[in-house]
Amino acid sequence: MDKRKRLRMDILLIALLLAATGVLYLAFGRTVETGTSAVVRIEGTVVARYSLLEDGVYPLNGGTNILEIRDGVAWMREADCPDHICMQQGKINKTGQVITCLPNLLTVTIEGGEQLVDGVVG
């Protein structure tokens, strides 16, 4: 196999992966709708559901994480994990957006108005 053909195959593979990125972005990563609630899950179980319309500071998971909601956006104010990636993930308010704290097996997801009514509360 000569070098040029390999290079072409490399570029093809990378192009395919970039295309896959685009498809995944359109399917999962793109967030446009402003959500209405922040849903807290610990190991997949919904443990709390807070309205984005009400300001508040909520300790989660027995205090390992503190979620703050103000002016319709939610963010992780404090966390006891070593990397603090959940705190760096910033403020979220669009349906589908997630804040994850992997060490504490905790996620905060923004969900929409319809899901508030139809959603299954675990």
């Binding site: 992966l17 896959a20 990125t21 685009g22 995944l24 972005y25 999962f28 990563g29 967030t31 899950r41 190991e43 997949g44 179980t45 589908g96 957006q97 997630v98 994850t100 992997l102 097996l105 905790l106 996620t107 997801t109």
Partner: peptide, 15 residues
Amino acid sequence: LLETDVLRYYLPFLV
């Protein structure tokens, strides 16, 4: 481990 698929949101950024 987190028993949730909400993490798929990160998939495009991770790829």
